[in-house]
Design a protein around this nucleic acid. Structure first.
Length: 418
RNA sequence: GGAGGCUUCGCCUAGUCCGGUCUAUGGCGCCGCACUGCUAAUGCGGUUUGGGGGUUAUUCCCCAUCGAGGGUUCAAAUCCCUCAGCCUCCGCCA
């Protein structure tokens, strides 16, 4: 949810943000109207409740003779109060609905436009010169690392088995990610992958892209697409202590995505799958530190990419492609030799106070008063990274070189060979 | 799955049987001030959260808030209903 006070004072700034996203400004007007209506309803109900209190005290103090007349009057007032409260309840609900519908305010500096309007910030590393490179699935099958056929036999399309050295490679990669996170002060976490509706909604995932998410109808629970959901919910309804700096968590979890609407896209191999594993960084900071934390998360992602020695570029994602929660997003995209294109390996978002307002997460500000925190997230490693490692480090003889930094996590192994 | 108990403003807790005097008790912790060679101790004051209003220097006023949501009533922490969470015992499964 965006800050209503900010909206009241700067409605045009919020409208501009909506335009940058390519979204309708009418959502903003609806929110302003709902806010106005609720304020009036609350003021009216408050006044009536005050009056009712006075009247009740009079009844209490009245003598036997006076009482019947007073009670009759009080009864009428009670009906009026009830009606006003019903109106307030309705206005509250309408405001919340309108409030939830408005996406986060885009950070200054983010490119306007849609999916293709990203800005490349930098390119890092050297693209390997490979003759007739194999794709990751071909390599993975030769190594006995990936089994798609049996994956679809068991789970259907977009499911897979990581086998033998493939399983070891994923564990090594994710362990290396956790090790790095711990080194930088993150608290490692293994998180629930089933969450309640209010937690999923609080992180902003039940908006326009709700059909991306698995739901267990019998239990009214959602399967998370990232541990961000659980880590954001971790401190929901809490006042946390940020006086010693940011709170940082590294969540390890399996992630589930329906991939609705991606039929025919990335169908080969494990690039786009229904289930994968991820280590995710998650930070709680004050709002004024959020931008710097965002840059730190990006730097930690790049450090991981450097460790696996993969060429990549960093893009500044355009406003229209941010999703409802993010105010700014940077993706790191690795080079994919088999397709001569870049592939998203990491994504870091600054969600400012958008999630924390929904989830009621605050800290005590300078004056001791609770104020919303900023939440940020960033990918440290995922199953998809295996694609990039296999393809970029493949050798002519069909083997794959293990990057130096990863070797200790693979029992010292320096090459994966058929 | 069955039976019982519990949930109060950071933590612990009084209050619930029998509705109004609850404007929610006390302790711990925390903050401020005083006292003090320093610390400690002591004393005094403050300390839920959210919304709104008057001053904007302090302060003050109104409304809501006793796990959540309904209901009864002129009036609900207190009575009734539904739900959630935690605990104990039983059953079942590891």
């Amino acid at each position: 949810m965006i800050d209503l006070r900010f909206l009241r004072d700067n409605p045009d700034a919020v409208r501009a943000s909506q335009r940058a996203r390519g979204e309708s400004e009418s959502l903003v007007d609806e929110l302003l109207a709902a806010d106005e209506r609720r304020r009036a309803a609350v003021a009216k109900a408050d006044a009536l409740r005050g009056e009712q209190k006075t009247v009740s005290n009079k009844v209490k103090a009245a003598s036997k003779d006076e009482r019947p007349a007073l009670v009759t009057a009080a009864r009428e007032l009670a009906a009026t109060v009830k009606a006003a409260e019903a109106e307030q309840t309705e206005a509250d609900a309408a405001l919340r609905e309108a409030h939830l519908a408005v996406p986060n305010i885009v950070e200054e500096g983010a490119p306007a436009g849609g999916e293709d309007d990203y800005v490349v910030i930098r390119e890092v590393g050297t693209i390997p010169q490979l003759e007739n490179p194999l794709d990751h699935l071909a390599i993975g099958e030769k190594l006995g690392a990936i089994d798609m056929e049996r994956g679809s036999k068991v789970g259907g399309s977009r499911f897979f088995f990581l086998t033998g050295v493939g399983a070891l490679l994923e564990l090594a990669l994710l362990n290396m990610a956790v090790a790095q996170a711990v080194e930088y002060g993150f608290t490692p976490m293994i998180t629930p992958t089933l969450v309640k509706p209010e937690i999923m909604g609080g992180t902003g995932f039940l908006g326009a892209h709700a059909d991306e998410i698995y739901r267990l109808e019998a239990d009214d629970l959602y399967l998370v697409g990232t541990s961000e959901v659980a880590l954001a919910g971790y401190h929901s309804d809490e006042i946390i202590d940020l006086s010693n700096g940011a709170k940082r968590y590294a969540g390890w979890s399996t992630c589930y995505r329906r991939e609705a609407g991606s039929y025919g896209k990335d169908t080969r191999g494990i690039i786009r799958v229904h289930q994968f594993d991820k280590v995710e960084m998650f930070s709680y900071t004050t709002l004024d530190q959020a931008h710097e934390e965002h840059l730190r998360l990006l730097a930690w992602e790049e450090e991981m990419l450097a460790k696996v020695e993969i060429p990549y570029r960093v893009i500044d994602v355009a406003a229209g492609d941010l999703g409802s929660s993010a105010a700014r997003k940077f993706d790191c995209e690795a080079w994919l030799p088999s397709q001569n294109r870049y592939l998203e390996l990491t994504s870091t978002s600054n969600c400012t106070d958008f999630q924390s307002r929904r989830l009621n997460i605050r800290h005590r500000g300078a004056n001791g008063k609770p104020e919303p925190v900023a939440t940020l997230n960033g990918t440290l490693a995922t199953t998809r990274w295996i694609v990039s490692i296999l393809e970029n480090h493949q050798q002519a003889d069909g083997s794959v070189t293990v990057p130096d930094a990863l070797r200790p996590f693979l029992g010292g192994r320096d090459v994966l060979a058929p």
